[in-house]
Amino acid sequence: MTSNLQQSVQTDNVFHTENVNIYYGDFLAVKEVNLDVPKNAITAFIGPSGCGKSTVLRCFNRLNDLIKSFHLDGKILYHGQDLYAPEIDAVEVRRQIGMVFQQPNPFPKSIYDNIAFGPRLLGYKGDMDELVERSLKRGALWEDVKDKLKAMGTDISGGQQQRLCIARAIAVQPEVILMDEPCAALDPISTLKIEDLMQELKEDYTLVIVTHNMQQASRASDYTAFFNVQANEKGQRTGFIEEYDRTESIFQSPKKKATQEYVSGRFG
């Protein structure tokens, strides 16, 4: 499966994982994750709920470190560097690998301060006004908010808040942006806006998105990993990657029966 993909992928890989098993305490949440995430493309994770797609996503910027019982074995390589090696600083990882969450979560600060938050953390000394403007333009929000940069980030609409969160992630110039069901809380029009935005962003960034919306995956992504879940005799549900390939292959000529059934809506 992996070799299959590597033949078709011509670009560099940003992430490369080797036999990653993810545990919460003794519970094996996701097993044997082997995948490559190509640069300047959108990779989508799809699959039934509980299959661990968000869990895997959060491993890419070590956000799972916040959960005490979490640990993993195997390797997650970012440009060949093991993200979980002891000398790696999780905080630095999160600076280069940004994240956008399911629920828009702007800080209860002004729109301006939301954008400036990351650059200030990194000690940015340049023209902050300019950076804020560029980030908001890049996040396709500038036209909506240019006259009210001092307004609270929490006082704009849900779709605008999510674009604010994307602009906030962009402001620090990360290499990768992870998106965990970024449109789950949004209406269809806002969703389309975000999808358009993702297409623009992939010129400069590598995007990995989790979505439960197969239309979205087929519309917006270049590569798709289909996650499935199996239960052991104790009833514990462990996720794994059933199939990973170019998006059109997954949706038009899947190799696995489970994938075929899932993408045609027969289960999940």
Binding site: R94, R95, F101, P108, F117, L121, R168
Partner: peptide, 22 residues
């Protein structure tokens, strides 16, 4: 709201930066 903490961590803030700024 815990999502604010995640947002700050996701932007690469340390624990104390998150505490003091968010």
């Amino acid at each position: 709201n815990p999502s604010l903490r995640q947002a700050a961590y996701g932007l690469g803030a340390t624990r104390w930066e998150t505490l003091f700024q968010v």
